[in-house]
Design a protein around this nucleic acid. Sequence first.
DNA 1: TTATTACCTG
DNA 2: CAGGTAATAA
Length: 659
Amino acid sequence: MDSPSDRFHQQPSQMCPFELYRSLPDSNPSGHRFPPGSLSSHPLFSPLMHPNSMSQKWGSFRQRQGLFPGLLVDDDVSEEDVFGKREFGATSSSQRGSGERGQAPEPSDWGQDFARVKRLRMDSAARSEDESIREGKRGRKSRSSFRMDEKKGMEQGNRRESREGRKRQRQELKLQLEETRGKLLELQRKVWRVYGGQADDEKDQENGGINLDEVADMFSDSDDPLVGNGFSPQRCSSKKNNETNGNGNAGIFPETSVDLDLELNGSQVWLGCSLIRGEWESAEGGQKFAQALKQELANVVAQVIDRVVRLYAESDPEAVSSAQEPSMTMDLNSDRRPRPQAVEQVEALPLVTKSPQDKRAPVAQSGHKDLLLPQANPSLAPLAQPPLPALLPPRGKEHFLPSYPPDNPVHLPLLHYTMQNLFARSLSSLPLHKDCLSESFMDFRSHNSAFPPLPLLGQLDPSPSDRAREVGMRAGGAGMVDGADAALYLAAGSSQEGLSPCHLKKAKLMFFYTRYPSSSTLKTYFPDVKFNRCVTSQLIKWFSNFREFFYIQMERFARQAAREVLTSARERALRLGRDTELYRILNMHYNKSNDYQVPERFVEISEVALREFFTAIQSGRDADPCWKKSIYKIICKLDSPVPDSFRLPGCPTDTYRMG
DNA sequence: TTATTACCTG
DNA sequence: CAGGTAATAA
């Protein structure tokens, strides 16, 4: 047999750490990866769904691309800028030259239509400010209220005349709006086709309809019923805009800022990934697309962390100074804190809440650590309860991408947990699917220069996942969110000392590679755990339990095989393919959520163990009270190196498959 | 002594 | 899966 490492390194080669992305263009009939209503399900339009990001990101994108000169006017560019300084038609045609790129549908007529409507709107807006405000308020009033207004108008004929004229103007405007609206909708469809690609087009036939309509809604006046949509937060905010901004400007392009939990620093996303529209259609388009998504997620994560760190810094005056250091570049020297005994105390009492004096975080030098420690404390729950108010000025995400300090694994996990907490909490207020979370976490990992993209995270497990899934929620899961993984992240975030269900899950997956991990190995692969005697022995105990289960199954199936009379049946029973019952049991035990591909190596080792048990039983060695020892010895030597991805905090399982 | 393991039990 | 215990090795 090859050496363990050799054989091990063979198998995971073709795996893609972003399997999810890679499979993006494929249609997914079951649709469980991108359920309707999930933001992630419509990556193209997700920027559009965010009132802010829509205007900023997509706006800047199309500005860069010069795609839709007509639409340009309603973006960040002020109206005066467009109509006052430039002649729209000229602008339109000149931009068209650079913007067409050969394949875009001719948008100039739409743009001109749009400009006409725009002018009309400008005219009416130019009347007077208060008037237009009243106008807007009146916009949705009933006819009776109009009549009341007219009665008042009788008193002053001039006013009435002008009002009549305005009314006509309004109607005209409305008509044109309707017309424009239709064209906009069409335009949206074309944009969708151009950017979404044909595959997505077909894939999203079912939920794509909703999507298109939603986008159309966002670009249209909000007379449409808003009930029953999938994105109530955005939609509601958009509607609010329309109602409060009477003149309807905001209704057409709801770029008005709404304080969402996550505001994306738009241009970074699209500009950062150097995406040219044409590339989306090419073969690599999917991957670029995925990168765009990744980057967007990373941005979100970075900003959220930034905000919460800031928040916490504000809530803890003593930590402010450290929190205002450029983000999370961990102070590696923070361990030379003047009160090392505090650390000792923590380590000695891993399962006990920290003493109040430790929480004080007395020295700014150690601020990062202390800053984040309480995140784990339940008392901090109120921290992120409000939907994260003040938004920080966006910072580059590289500030957050942890340059993972292998020599000092204590700090990063805290950061990681902070992210986990954040995301877990964001779950409640954002329509993000938990897939997004996992991906964003992985995004951090994959951006980590110290650990290049993980090769081990593999393809779908060919074994039937149904049975594996019927277990449902994790047994030990603190299943707050409907997915075990999200819950695990949450749980992991709730204590930086001691072991969480997430750690248990990780340990189980590690068992696929190593049955007999040394304590130093454990320390290496659980960098987010504060190791003390108790925690170490608990981890060791876990692996002991894993082994116990493993060997019990092996012996059981070996005896079962030994009972077979026919040699063929016996041989069959000693095979351990991925379609066998024994495999299913093992997978169920160590990979309950079935979101990790069982390494081939583990299957082989299991079969070795099975056969060893079998031969021992066959030869009657099992009469010896310590007959298993020799088998243990054999299995002990078959440990494989654990993939590097396990060095990172958190579960390495949720990267490529959710369900 | 301490650490690790297997085994048993709940 | 954790607690307890005994055996064993360093």
